[in-house]
Structures are given as C-alpha cells and as structure tokens.
Amino acid sequence: SMDRSHLCQSLIKWLNTFNVTVKNQTVEDFSDGIAVAQVLRQIAPDYFNEAWFKKLKVEDDLNWRLKVSNLKKVLNGILEYNMEVLGIQIQGFQMPDVNLIGEHYDSVETSRLLQLVLGCAVNCAEKESHIHNILKMEESVQQMIMNAIQELMSKE
C-alpha cells in the first residue's frame, strides 16, 4: 500500500501548481477546505461556481467545527461532480475523515481528500492541460501521482 504521508506531500506539490489566494504549503493550510475549493473552481468552474463557493466560510482562524463543515461541503461536491458530470461512481475507496483533517491536520486523511481532487483533474473536460502539467513535475512526484490515480481507477 501507499506511503500516504509521502503521497500527501506529493499531492500538495501538485496543488501548488494552481493559483490560489490562500496559503497552500502545509497540511494545516488545507484543513479549512478553501484552498481545495479554489482548485476545484479552476478544474470545473461551471460546476464549482460562485454560488457553490459562497456556501463555504472563508475567514482566517476558523474554528475546527467550521473547517469540518467546509470540508464536508467540499467532499460532497467532489462526489456529486464525479457522479453527475463525470459519470464516475467511486466504490470501495476509503473516504477522507474530514474531522481528522479539520481538527488534527491529519496527513493521511488529507492525502485521501487531495487524491479525490486529483481524480477530478485527470477526468475533467480540461484533463489534457492538467496531465501535461503533471508531466512537467519531478519524476518522483509523477510516480506518486500515477499510483494515486491507479488506485482511484481501481475503485471506479
């Protein structure tokens, strides 16, 4: 099985290739769902639109309950986008525990969330540009990303 702490670092490096207006370097930076939501907006702007984004609380120093509330909305959005737009039903994949992400900045659970974002990117209408961006990354990161995609594909 995958080294998920290592995977988390590789996926954060990949997410750093997107433009976001919030901090996006550490696992903690991903604990309120906002950086992920901004990336999703770039991946599928018609689906993850302004109205969807406005359901999230965007403030510095959110308490952990509000972070978890954001993360639940982000996770549900990802799963609905997979079903409704991509026609992908993910089965048998261990879903991220958003409580552990929001309260404890857990890198294993964060890796599961970021892995689902990766799945959106490489299956969306603009997947070609996302895949080309992945191919510009260092080989060790590409390797981790490949493993993560392969695991997801085995659960579709």
Binding site: L86, G87, N123, L135, E139, M146
Partner: peptide, 30 residues
C-alpha cells in the same frame, strides 16, 4: 526495498501511463 519499478524504466512507464490517461474517454455529459 526492491519492490519498485526497475531503474531506467520508470520514465517510459510514466509516459505510457499518462498517455493512456489522455486517450481514456470520460464524462457522462460528453
């Protein structure tokens, strides 16, 4: 630990994988 891909092969393997991903058809609304 000896369980990874053999050295020297990984670049081709990565290219193969991502090329196959590019040609994969997805999208319920496509």
């Amino acid at each position: 630990d000896g369980k990874g891909a053999p050295p020297g092969n990984s670049e081709g393997m990565l290219a193969n994988f991502f090329n196959s991903l590019l040609s994969k058809k997805t999208g319920a609304a496509a």
